[in-house]
Amino acid sequence: MPEWQERITRETPPAIRIEHEVRYGAVAPLARSAPTWVDLGCGAGIAAAGALAGEGPPRAVLVDASEEALAQAAREIPAGETIGVQADLATADGLAAVRTALGDARDGVATCFEVIEHLESFIGVIELLVELATERDFTVVLSVPNDAFWPIESPWHKTMWGEGSFEELRRLLPAEHVVIQQVPLQGSALIPEGAEAALAGPFVGRADGVPSHFLAAFGPRCRELGARSGVAQADLAEQRRWERQREANLAIYEDHITWADRQLAQRQG
C-alpha cells in the first residue's frame, strides 16, 4: 500500500525519514555557515534537526502552514535565533509574510523540500526563491517528487511531476543551476562486535534506475552540493506493527464505507 504520510514524525518509517535527512544533510554545511537559513515548508523540523546534529545556523526562519508544526520545529531545530512564520505559500499574503520575516537578510541559504507539489499555485514561491538567489545572494535548494517512481497518485499533491514538468520548472530558474537526482537505496550491513554502528559506505548505482525526487540548486554556493547518501537502521518489528495497524485501519474504513453505501441505497430505494 502507498505511504501517504506527508509530515515527518518520530513514527515515520526509517526509509522515508532518511530520504528527508539526506536532503537536509546535503545543505547542512551551507546552512551552518550562513547568517540566515530559511526553510519553506519546514514541517515539524525532525528531519532537519537530525541532519544538523545539534549545530545549526545563527538565524533560522521556519515557514509552514501549520502552527503546531512550527512550534515543534522551533523546539527541534538548533539555531541562535528562530523565527516562525505561519503562511500559505500559494498566496500573496503568505509570501509577503516570508519577505517581512527575512527583512534585509543577505548571503543566506533557502530550502524548499517537498512543498511545491502541495501548492495550488507554485509560481509565486519560485519567484521568491529566484529573487533570493539573484538579488540577495542566497543559495537555494528545492525538490519535487518524480511521479514516475510512485505507482499511485497522492491525494495530497496538487500538481504532478516528472522529467518533462521538471524541465519546464528549470526554465524558470537562473541559468546557472545544478540538478541532482535522488535515488532510493536498500541494503544491509555487517558490524563487528565493538565497532561503531553508524555506517556510511559505498553503494551500487544503476544506469536505468528511476529517481524518486529531483533537486535543483542555484545561487552563489550551489556547486558545493554533491553526491550524498545515508543509511538508517530499520526497526523491522516496529515497521511490521505499523503496517498491520494501517491495514486494520483500512479494513475498518472500508467497512464503514460499505455500511454507509448500503444505508444510502436503502434511503434512495
Rank of each mutant, 00 (worst) to 15 (best):
G226A: 08
S143R: 11
V140W: 10
A97E: 12
A110Q: 14
A26D: 03
Y253A: 15
A148L: 12
P184M: 01
L172K: 15
E254Y: 06
G194F: 13
G230T: 13
E193G: 09
V22Y: 02
A227R: 10
H118K: 05
S212P: 00
H256M: 09
G194L: 15
I191C: 14
Q233P: 13
E196I: 13
I252F: 09
L89M: 03
A60Y: 06
A44M: 07
T159N: 09
R10N: 12
R32A: 03
I116V: 10
E6F: 05
A51R: 02
Q239I: 11
P184W: 01
Y253W: 14
A195P: 00
R10F: 09
G230Y: 08
E67W: 05
A71T: 10
T258M: 02
T139G: 10
D235V: 09
E196C: 11
F138Y: 14
F218D: 04
I16Y: 03
F113I: 06
K158M: 12
D261G: 04
G124F: 11
E68V: 13
A51V: 04
F138Q: 15
P192W: 10
R221W: 06
A26R: 04
G103K: 00
C42A: 04
S154R: 06
L70R: 02
I8V: 13
D93I: 07
A96G: 06
E135F: 12
E114T: 00
E11V: 11
R246I: 13
G164P: 00
L62H: 05
T12D: 07
R171C: 12
D137I: 08
R10M: 10
M160W: 04
G43T: 00
Q5S: 03
P192S: 08
G45S: 05
F218R: 09
L172T: 10
D88K: 10
A198L: 12
R240W: 10
